[in-house]
Design a protein around this nucleic acid. Structure first.
Length: 715
DNA sequence: AGCACGCCGACT
DNA sequence: GTCGGCGTGCTC
């Protein structure tokens, strides 16, 4: 940053001649200004990383700009008492400043999600960077530079012949770039190849490519595909599975522009990418893109912003797009027009989609009598289908979205249930290690031998989870090799990868798992995927539950029939008491478009997202009354703002209510839903309202903690 | 949020 | 007598 006119002589450096505004990691409730002023002997470019004294410690900060300019620039108001300012302790000169584009992303995200810029900025830089001083950083950079010199030049990779649909997709990407594209295509329609080709084009133009995946589990396979396709290119990965030094290493490779490809989970949206040319958001509908703690940002939404301001295309890929994205990609006349939709109509290699079969549990009972439910949740027809696969040497997968043996244990004589003493939830019975465990707070106990209330030894599991399903299968199909993969098995015995390898190697006949096995993994010999108990989501109070269920079932169905030879007899089974539900009709036809249309119609009529914008104010306290009192005060403040005409009267606040799980780890939780017809109105409202909330709880207490969730995914 | 200073209980 | 609880106050 050069402000001095060239004709003017540069004066000798004089300590504290300039004043820099520095963002430091302080939450907004602290009440200090967003940026703190420091003296510095020279101007510093915005985006420069510095170490500054703050109270009794020295912290890492990010230069926002100059508060008092060098004389020729003179437009900014100097702070009141420049004499009392402290000096910048150290400037990270060895590190290029964050780009203006990154700073804009920061500003946008902080404002949109109601966080302080300093807090957001510093929390999305690698923690290891904050711990380093200038000398250590220099050492790191040297090491990195050495490694950059030896970029391997591999053999020319094989590229598959493109299907016509893929060719057309790529043509649109070229012709309409840069813009935001919604790439809609079923599992196996070749979306990844489209990403790879477009990435190649962008890389050849000398720009960087950012690829986001929903879960850390999905990074290795995509990383392998990109690495194989671009052997000479440096690839950086960013996710929470890296050690702090690894994360710093990869972050620096991206920041210095040495890595051309950056692949990661939602946190990677904040990667420093000085030459960004393309962002891919794979499985864009996945709820994992929304951060659920701290700054509750949506990496997918930020990707759209970032791409737009960087002049980079954004590809949102999914077989079952979020309804938000689907609407944005609709014609302008229907309320869309912001994204361009590209369809990949068919499966590559002509693989057929699995036939969807609904098992009407009502009819099963009618035909086989109520004793058929003894087998529940495996109905006689499903059992027969599993046997068939077993005889043919094919694999099956049973999905049940519930870990453990049974969600609750109960006493048949006195009615005692295994309640968690710290949460308003049941402790789940885990038979494997004979424990009762709360899935909310993690607390547990050994399974009691008798009812703790009345001493009756007859305590029974109610309902079923994956453990019990696995056990039932072992009884029903004694000759089958059954394996269970869920959060519990991946936690105790190695990685998901190694367990999946068993399945790939054909050592498994039936796979039982939660939704984690339904995502992204291809099993070539899998010809049956069954959702054993899907009804829960049909009548949920969460208006997004059907959308999530449909996506999950479509995605799970996509696991079957990846082998073209077996595709013809691949089936997706769903057991339900409500076979007439319209969701299933759409599923049978693999008709996302019809499903989206009906869902959007419902949402439009009810003025729910994406036809309105929402934010949630959450409060945690020692009692429900305290939490709700905070929210009521917040509600009253909103009313005052509206009465004074300072915010739109169209913003609607629902009454405060307890959250769906009211108490977690002895903390009572309540929430207040805010709804506005448009995002802009909601944003304007939050900008006026949220700063007032600090005052309700000032000084900040441990009794009440609160947070705002903009565009919440579950209410 | 950190991190200090600052006054009241059970321990080397 | 000290170590340590967390209550209030400050950080450019």
């Amino acid at each position: 940053m050069e402000c001095t006119p060239e004709t003017e002589r540069v004066p000798p450096p004089e300590a504290g001649r300039c004043i820099v505004r520095v963002l430091v990691e302080l939450p907004r409730h602290v009440g200090l200004h967003e940026a703190l002023d420091y003296r510095c002997d020279r101007p510093l470019a915005p985006g420069t990383l510095v170490r500054v004294p703050l109270g009794r410690r020295v912290v890492t900060g990010l230069v926002e700009g100059m508060a008092e300019p060098t004389p020729a620039c003179g437009q900014v108001v100097p702070p009141a008492e420049p004499e009392r300012l402290r000096d910048v302790a150290e400037v990270f000169d060895a590190l290029p400043p964050m780009t203006a584009g990154w700073m804009r992303l920061l500003d946008f995200a902080a404002a949109y999600y109601q966080r302080s810029r300093g807090e957001l900025a510093l929390s999305c830089l690698p923690t290891a960077l904050r711990a380093l001083d200038g000398v250590q950083l220099q050492r790191r950079l040297k090491k990195l530079a050495r490694r950059a010199d030896v970029a391997p030049e591999g053999a020319t990779p094989q590229r598959p012949v493109l299907a016509p649909g893929q060719q057309q997709a790529l043509q649109k990407l070229v012709e309409q770039a840069p813009s935001t594209f919604l790439l809609h295509g079923v599992t196996g329609s070749g979306k990844t190849e489209v990403y790879l080709r477009e990435a190649q084009r962008v890389l050849e133009a000398g720009r960087q490519v950012l690829v986001l995946v929903p879960e850390i589990n999905l990074t290795p396979q995509l990383e392998a595909r990109f690495a194989a396709r671009f052997p000479g290119r440096r690839l950086a990965v960013l996710h929470s599975g890296l050690t702090p030094p690894q994360r710093l290493q990869h972050w620096l490779a991206a920041h210095l522009g040495q890595a051309d490809l950056v692949l990661g989970t939602r946190m990677a949206i904040f990667a420093s990418l000085p030459r960004l040319g393309l962002i891919v958001v794979d499985e864009e509908h996945d709820p994992s893109y929304k951060q659920q703690e701290g700054a509750r940002y949506s990496a997918r939404d930020l990707a759209v912003y970032r791409g737009r301001q960087a002049g980079a295309s954004v590809i949102l890929g999914s077989a079952t797009p979020s309804l938000e994205s689907w609407l944005n990609a609709a014609p302008a006349a229907e309320g869309g027009g912001r994204y361009r939709r590209i369809d990949l109509p068919e499966r590559i290699g002509g693989g057929a989609l699995p036939a969807v079969r609904l098992v009407d549990l009502e009819r099963v009972v009618a035909q086989h009598g109520r004793q058929a439910l003894r087998l529940h949740p495996i109905s006689p027809p499903l059992l027969a289908a599993l046997r068939e696969r077993l005889e043919r040497g094919e694999q099956s997968m049973l999905l049940l979205n519930r870990r453990g043996y049974a969600p609750v244990l109960h006493c048949t004589s006195c009615g005692w249930k295994s309640a968690c003493p710290h949460c308003s939830a049941w402790r789940v019975f885990h038979k494997v290690d004979r424990t009762l465990r709360c899935h909310h707070c993690g607390s547990g106990q050994r399974v009691p031998l008798a009812c703790p209330e009345c001493g009756d030894p007859d305590i029974q599991p109610m309902g079923r989870g994956t453990e019990r399903l696995e056990e039932q299968l072992a009884t029903l199909l004694p000759q089958a090799r059954v394996v269970r993969i869920d959060g519990d098995t991946t936690r105790q015995s190695g990685s998901l990868e190694s367990q999946l390898a068993q399945v790939h190697d054909g050592e498994v006949d039936v796979l039982v798992g939660t939704q984690m096995v339904a995502k992204g993994h291809d099993f070539r010999r899998m010809t049956l995927v069954a959702a054993v108990d899907a009804d829960g989501a049909l009548f949920s109070s969460d208006f997004r539950a059907p959308e999530r269920l449909f996506a999950l079932l479509m995605q799970a169905g996509g696991r079957a029939g990846r082998d073209a030879a077996l595709a013809a007899r691949s089936e997706m089974w769903v057991q339900t008491w409500h076979p007439a539900h319209p969701l299933f009709a759409a599923l049978k036809g693999h008709d996302y478009i019809a499903f989206a249309r009906s869902q959007l119609d419902e949402r439009r009529i009810a003025a729910m997202p994406p036809f309105s914008a929402q934010a949630l104010l959450r409060a945690d306290a020692s009692t429900q009354e305290l939490a709700q009192a905070f929210l009521q005060r917040a509600e009253a403040l909103a009313g005052e703002l509206q009465a004074a005409g300072q915010v739109s009267a169209e913003v609607f606040l629902y009454p405060p209510v307890p959250t769906s799980v009211q108490r977690v780890a002895d903390v009572e939780r309540a929430q207040l839903l805010v709804e506005a017809p448009r995002r802009a109105q909601l944003q304007a409202f939050l900008a006026a309202w949220v700063p007032l909330l600090d005052d309700i709880n000032r000084p900040p207490t441990r009794v009440i903690r609160w947070a705002v969730d903009v565009d919440p995914l579950s209410i």
